[in-house]
């Protein structure tokens, strides 16, 4: 099986039933994507598959064959690195464990809705849990990105 991660192809004898999360983490070594709940409840494992935010813990790798996977490791090389910049500017993360998922979910939001209202931000981000309580700063950082978008 061949999968496409951050603009590169990886070929291997993957168990097609293994969730994308574990192929990324344990087989390919992309550990930026986190295991949080294994049930699609917390969002820590969020990646993009064909530009859509997906909970990688709950989707078998077979589903991603022929599709484009994007993870936190590739974010720096996209225009959405502005989110990473804003996360630093607003000093969002504390322990940081959920933040790969928060960032990738935010990319997914901005890809479908480049100008979300505050309510739309809350709606889109409510699937991503943070135990440190960085939510106020996530909202602030997202607003910074939206307001300072390049025309």
């Amino acid at each position: 099986m061949r999968i496409h991660v951050n603009d590169k192809d990886y070929e291997g004898d993957f168990d097609p039933n293994m969730p994308i999360l574990w192929v990324l983490r344990d087989v390919l070594g992309f550990t930026g994507t986190k295991y949080g709940c294994g049930k699609g409840l917390c969002g820590a494992c969020t990646i993009l598959v064909d530009d859509q935010p997906v909970r990688s813990c709950s989707v078998p790798v077979g589903f991603a064959e022929g599709k484009r996977i994007h993870t936190i490791e590739g974010l720096e090389n996209t225009p959405y690195r502005s989110l990473q910049m804003a996360w630093i500017k607003e000093q969002v993360p504390q322990c940081g464990y959920c933040q790969s998922g928060q960032l990738m979910n935010a990319v997914g939001l901005l890809k479908t809705n480049p100008n979300p209202t505050e309510n739309e931000i809350l709606d889109a981000m409510q699937g991503n849990i943070c135990r440190c309580g960085t939510y106020p700063r996530i909202i602030k950082a997202l607003k910074t990105v939206i307001e300072n978008k390049e025309a």
């Binding site: 550990t31 490791e73 974010l75 990473q84 940081g96 933040q99």
Partner: peptide, 9 residues
């Protein structure tokens, strides 16, 4: 530590 966190590192 935040620079490492936002890169997934």
């Amino acid at each position: 530590i935040i620079p490492d966190i936002v890169l997934g590192k």
